[in-house]
Amino acid sequence: MPYVANARMYSVNPPAAAAWKDLFGWLARGSGVDLDIIDHAFPLPLADLWARNDLACAFMCGFPFMLAAHRPRPVVAPVPTKAAIRGRPVYVTRLVVRADSPFHTIEDTFDGRLGYTVADSHSGYNALRHHLLPYFLQRGAKLYRESIGPLTTPRRVIEALLTGAIDVGPLDGYALDLMQHHQPELTSDIRVVATTDPAPIPFLVAAPGCPDEIVAILQATLATFADAPACAGLRERLRLDAFAPVAVEDYGLMTRWDAEVRAAGYPQPA
């Protein structure tokens, strides 16, 4: 039977989406698993993708994974070329502003308009709250006059910045690297004013009922990605060095951060 593959979370522009489709094509040939590479673009809910019974490979953020009552099966985690800790499957959130804005630090943006992606996102919500918590505790009051969202995707965060709908917004650091690699003009459009602490990166998952042998052969094939000569171009196009085993216990950091901000009375970034 065919299984579904999708890289919506990191299909940040057409060149990146094409590279992920090529990666899944290589994976299907190398593993012998029949992969149906589907589109599942915004505004379709990611939760519907993660709930598919025929899912074999789709990116899932660690925060909703940890919160899920019925978790999908972890497959592998990507190791970005610009990983926050070299050689590790980790990432950061970049807090960005328009390049021509007067803001140069995160404190400069206070009392402005803050964007966020969606409440079950780590990079676009949970990490943002964690980073802002010390400032909230110091001030003892809201940091921003408006909290605008859900913007859902990194692309829509950038659009909101460029149209002036928000003053600052969070971007998944790996997604930003992919976007800037394929659209270098973005470097002159936006500017990073702060970076969060590192966290475990979103990873590929399969349906809870995906057979052991299918998960195992996908893991074994993706483990060869780092050294496969046929993947040299893909490694460059995807800004990706390797795939690593998923250490589920590491993702507990996300629920700890969530508990900390809630206990401090700062459940929503604003």
Rank of each mutant, 00 (worst) to 15 (best):
S123F: 01
G124Q: 02
A127Q: 05
L128S: 04
L128T: 04
R129A: 13
R129D: 04
H130Q: 15
H130Y: 13
L132F: 07
L133K: 07
L133C: 09
P134F: 08
P134T: 10
Y135I: 13
F136Y: 12
F136M: 04
F136H: 07
F136C: 03
Q138Y: 11
K142I: 14
K142D: 15
Y144M: 14
E146Q: 14
S147W: 05
I148N: 07
I148A: 12
I148Q: 06
I148C: 10
G149R: 03
P150Y: 03
L151N: 00
T152C: 15
T152E: 12
T152Q: 11
T153R: 05
P154E: 02
R156W: 11
V157L: 07
I158E: 00
I158K: 01
A160R: 12
L161D: 03
L161A: 11
L162M: 15
T163N: 14
A165H: 04
I166E: 01
D167G: 12
D167Q: 10
G169F: 05
L171A: 04
L171S: 05
G173A: 09
L176G: 00
L178V: 07
L178M: 13
Q180P: 00
Q180W: 08
H181S: 05
H181Q: 10
P184W: 12
E185C: 12
T187S: 12
S188C: 13
D189V: 13
I190G: 00
I190E: 00
V192Q: 09
V193S: 09
V193R: 10
T195H: 06
T196R: 00
T196V: 04
A199F: 07
A199Q: 11
I201K: 03
F203T: 01
L204I: 03
L204C: 00
A207V: 09
P211T: 13
P211Y: 06
P211D: 10
I214S: 05
A216Q: 06
I217Q: 08
Q219M: 13
T221P: 00
T221D: 09
T221G: 02
A223Y: 02
A223D: 06
A223T: 02
F225R: 01
A226E: 07
A226V: 01
A226C: 10
A228E: 03
P229M: 10
P229H: 07
A230V: 11
A230I: 12
A230Y: 07
A232P: 11
L234Q: 03
E236M: 08
E236H: 04
E236R: 02
E236D: 09
R237T: 01
R237M: 08
L238H: 01
R239H: 11
L240K: 03
L240E: 03
L240D: 00
A242F: 07
